[in-house]
């Protein structure tokens, strides 16, 4: 006889070819390379760990101060500090692979060739489930215009990366655009397997005593609960217009927030700033989603995806 009194809801999901045990990932740049949080949990049970943004060469990042708290949020201007793709592959990936962590690499660059070169280096290394493309980076060849704000560049960068890899490719859309649906469509045309939405919103803070911007970099990316309504709206708009898996994030702090994103149309969700407040947030949220499914007789998480969309 089956000893289980009832069947557990199924939280597993497929994000455009990235297989996840549960739909809650941790967002790039907020969870380091995973091991920073090992004192607090078994990081292998997290749906996916999206590691810190990786560039071709090492980067030292922006001068401090790099972060400042704002109402229900924070601004960051880290400047993509990272040891470069070679160190990622030799020092961080083997460790995560041995732990059995579902790893999504996050790529950044300042030219299409940069992105393609990093993707090429990742190819053939076991233990990477997929690639997230941070396209909120300035394109030096286009006068520093962000890749993610121009549909033509978005399509080109996705195409270039797709040519270098067999892994699922998921561009991470910038919310700093007028028409997010147009950008999403361009990414899909370029061959994106999924979309990650949203990156931080550009903002700033001013120190009135010193009469100057607080951040060393002047501008920074706003994250946390303050951006949740914007993220939800954009995911809802894109899911309404096209059929592509979405990793939804922006201000998710608890299971209720995560369920809102899923019902707006996200196949899976990512927790960023929430990790700073509760290092176990991703696990607590996955458990909370499971509880909601049990209470509401939902057997598979996919039943909830887009549930709030007009029928």
């Amino acid at each position: 006889m089956n000893s289980r009194p009832m069947s557990y809801p199924d939280l597993s999901t497929d994000l455009g070819g990235i297989k996840m045990n549960n739909p809650v990932a941790v967002a790039s740049g907020t969870f380091g390379y995973g091991r920073e949080y090992e004192d607090y949990m078994d990081i292998a049970v997290i749906g996916a760990v999206i590691v810190k943004g990786t560039t071709l060469e090492p980067r030292v990042g922006n001068p401090p101060p790099r972060i400042i708290e704002t109402p229900a949020g924070m601004l960051n201007a880290i400047g993509l500090e990272n040891p470069g793709v070679d160190i990622f592959l030799s020092e961080h990936l083997p460790y995560l692979r041995d732990k059995g962590v579902t790893v999504i690499a996050n790529l950044a660059g300042n030219s299409i060739d940069d992105y393609a070169a990093v993707a090429a280096k990742l190819e053939g290394h076991a233990g990477i489930a997929g690639i997230e493309l941070n396209i909120s980076c300035p394109n030096v060849k286009k006068g520093g215009l962000q890749f993610g704000t121009d549909p033509v560049m978005v399509k080109q960068v996705v195409e270039a990366v797709k040519q270098e890899t067999f892994l699922p490719v998921m561009p991470k859309l910038s919310p700093n655009v007028t028409n997010i649906v147009e950008i999403a469509a361009a990414a899909r045309e370029g061959g994106a397997d999924a979309l990650s939405m949203i990156n931080t919103l550009m903002g700033m803070a001013i120190d009135i005593e010193q009469r100057r911007p607080v951040l060393g970099n002047v501008f920074g990316g706003l994250s946390g609960p303050a951006i949740k309504p914007v993220a939800l709206r954009m995911i809802y708009q894109v899911h309404r217009e096209m059929d592509i898996p979405i990793l939804g994030g922006g201000g998710i702090m608890n299971a209720r927030d995560a369920l809102e994103f899923i019902m707006a149309g996200a196949t899976a969700v990512s927790v960023g700033t929430g990790n700073f407040v509760n290092p176990r947030a991703a696990l607590d949220i996955a458990r909370g989603i499971q509880g909601f499914m049990q209470d509401n007789g939902v057997k598979q998480i996919s039943e909830l995806v887009g549930a709030a969309q007009p029928r």
Partner: peptide, 17 residues
């Protein structure tokens, strides 16, 4: 002292020269 988010070396927010 520096402003901190994660406190565990993950966010790179507390950089100091």
């Amino acid at each position: 002292e520096e402003h901190m988010a994660c406190g565990v070396g993950a966010c790179l927010g507390c950089a100091c020269q």
